[in-house]
Design a binder for these strands. Structure first.
Lengths: 253, 253
DNA sequence: TCATGTGAATCTATTCACAGCC
DNA sequence: GGCTGTGAATAGATTCACATGA
């Protein structure tokens, strides 16, 4: 543990940039891997490589947390793991509910990453009475009717929405009314929430569309490198795909 | 379709900011919903509200695509749907493979959003021989051994990785070697890829950790508003969660 | 000597505010 | 009159480059 400081930088955690916060979990994961291999210290260069960022960015990020490194040496792995965990609030237990136990909800319930690092699946909730009582990942599914009670009894402040798009806003409203203040949304919808509630979204089709944009650009550049064809589809298989509206349900809940 | 322009702004699509690209799918979704309700035109204000952004940002975003609106009126819904689809490369067909058909892979295969909007699940691939031939979402799972052939036969350039963390880099390397140039990674690992290959990642535990950070801050501010307790856990249920290493497998593949 | 920590410079993104056009 | 389109202003993030201190 090397540097046994007392620390506590007074006006702590004030104004850590959002971009930095979003990278802390990445650093933490890389550090945890090092910790498991019993690596005692790591340089910004090495850690940055493991986390897939450049070292200047990493050092700047850490500078917002405090001076946790040793010049000429690097960072103490265990100490950093602890500091970042604390900064992220992972030294406490966060009960989480998952609403919508379809394919995706079940996958999330089974996801090992939940159990580790401070998160605990407190309950699974679904609107389908046929699912009520059935265990998924060892946890019996409860009915949506009891949502408010479940939230309150378990002191849940983080909710995961894995329902179809059509149900998401309604579920969201009920979660918020019951006291949830952070939501991870897997449904392909924009959620409206009051101030003070954080929403993060995970959207498969958005990610794919972003990739498609870059793919198209690559194809266009190849063509440009050869010559001609200024602004049209370049791939031979360019076809007009079926109609189909968007707003696809994630899965039946 | 209102404005029947010829368009094609010469040096098109040059330098659309990444942040704008990431929002285009959002606009497209909102526009598609309007289109289904047969709404003919929409103002930046209305569309921005539907997409969950502010109108200045939306107008600026659209300005990178060209001048597709009408002053004093707004935007023609159908026309914009087409322009954004084209910009994103969704007027062509993108065959996609999913590697790792566990809980999550199956959820993705069943996800309706794939089929719509230009993406087609060309193949499902898994390393488990017991799965080979079994249909998931109506598509028979193929064995990893045939990965290269599958990629080439189908002209796949976009791959989705839903394997455990330990297998992800290896799968990634094979996909890239076989010609895939865009990867959507659900495994909790940093993937190393050569230049010219795009990777986007979807990471549940990172999202949760970011939410936990903000939750903790909220709790801290509440406490501060009352007085005292400068920098410690505030929740009554603050507990030191079990040890457990990170790097959790998404599911068996 | 070596790698951190950080001001300064740069690049990117957002917001403002209004000219331009329907 | 009303809404788009966009320069200019601001805010935020990244990168540079080096002083600082173990």
């Amino acid at each position: 543990m090397a540097t046994g400081r007392t620390h506590r930088p007074a006006t702590r955690s004030r104004g850590i940039p959002e971009a930095t916060v979003a990278r802390l979990p990445l650093y933490l994961r890389a550090l945890t891997a090092l910790s498991e291999r019993s690596v005692p210290t790591v340089s910004s260069e090495e850690l940055a490589a493991a986390a897939g960022v450049n070292s200047a960015k990493l050092r700047k990020d850490f500078s917002y947390l405090g001076s946790y490194g040793t010049r000429g040496v690097g960072y103490d792995v265990e100490y950093l793991v602890y500091q970042i965990s604390r900064e992220l609030g992972l030294t406490q237990d966060w009960p989480v509910v998952i609403v919508g136990i379809g394919n995706l909800g079940a996958a999330l319930a089974n996801y090992g990453g939940f159990a580790s690092r401070g998160f605990r699946v407190a309950a699974l909730i679904d609107a389908d009475p046929a699912l009520t009582g059935k265990p998924v990942a060892g946890i019996p599914v409860q009915h949506t009717d009891d949502l408010e009670k479940i939230i309150k009894d378990n002191g849940v402040s983080i909710g995961v929405i894995a329902t179809p798009a059509g149900a998401a806003q309604q579920v969201c409203d009920r979660l918020v009314a019951a006291g949830v203040t952070s939501i991870l949304n897997f449904a392909p919808t924009v959620l409206n929430v009051p101030d003070g509630v954080d929403v993060r979204k995970v959207d498969l089709s958005i990610e794919l569309q972003i990739l498609a944009f870059h793919e198209q650009r690559k194809a266009g550049e190849e063509a440009a490198a050869e010559g001609a064809v200024p602004a049209a589809a370049t791939r031979p298989d360019s076809a007009d795909q079926g109609p189909d509206g968007d707003v696809p349900a994630v899965m039946p809940a």
